[in-house]
Design a protein around this nucleic acid. Sequence first.
DNA 1: GGTGAAAAAAAATTTTC
DNA 2: GAAAATTTTTTTTCACC
Lengths: 146, 146
Amino acid sequence: MDHTDQELLRLLSIDARMSLKSLADEVGMSSPAIAERLQKLQENDVIRAFTLDLNAEAMGYPMVAIVRIRPLPGKLLVVERLLQEIPEVAECDRVTGDDCFVARVYLRSIQHLDEVLNRIIDKAQTSTSIVKSQVVKRRPAPFVTE
Amino acid sequence: MDHTDQELLRLLSIDARMSLKSLADEVGMSSPAIAERLQKLQENDVIRAFTLDLNAEAMGYPMVAIVRIRPLPGKLLVVERLLQEIPEVAECDRVTGDDCFVARVYLRSIQHLDEVLNRIIDKAQTSTSIVKSQVVKRRPAPFVTE
DNA sequence: GGTGAAAAAAAATTTTC
DNA sequence: GAAAATTTTTTTTCACC
């Protein structure tokens, strides 16, 4: 992981479909060299995947909620499995502290929020925050931007 | 946004570098047709970007914390700007409720957590949860998986 | 909105330093 | 470990339905 690798990651996180040639030109190397570096970055599990940044709103999901979930006694595993099955849950972490889970949920409306929460309401206490704006839009953490 | 578009989004969210030809073969169309559809999906801001899924751990950031932040009276804007400047903050949302912000922070160690929190400690109350495991790994929400 | 074929561009392979 | 040249593959363009 030298400076060139970091630069490749920076460029690809802006446009993952950049051609090897464009990447090569940007960092001042040859295409085969870039191809080999990308392969190594994937083999070393630095690059997990080339993926999409999708606009949820443009697809009919204008609301995002952050839900903290505290399962009732004995319900932890059931709740965990349930969260994995709910497609609106775009991300969920098991965390330390009183709230066991923090989930990021994509929604069509406030009514939709109710529908989703109803699926866990009898197995956990929940605390919901509606996202009003994105202060920091998801970015690939220090290692790429620094 | 027909079924073919949805299928393209599904395929590209697994591998954003798939060639037009491969995509064409998968959905049973010609390459030019796929090229045009991808262009439209970008123009309509459905696809925001082709990007990377990076492994923070492989790059020396083995810890993730979810921090709820409640700025002290009059400090909201200062805190917001500060959060945007901290590179460890990979994502931050302004939310409803008592906690104004929820941030996702990538860290090298527990000591590193202290360093980051010290930058806002005199301007806000914070509540930190350490991520123990990912119950649902970030996925592109209902519209792609359903 | 789509196809199919040709031209242009890019990627992978091999050879070379 | 990287560059250059060749072959293969992909992307783009264009005429057409």
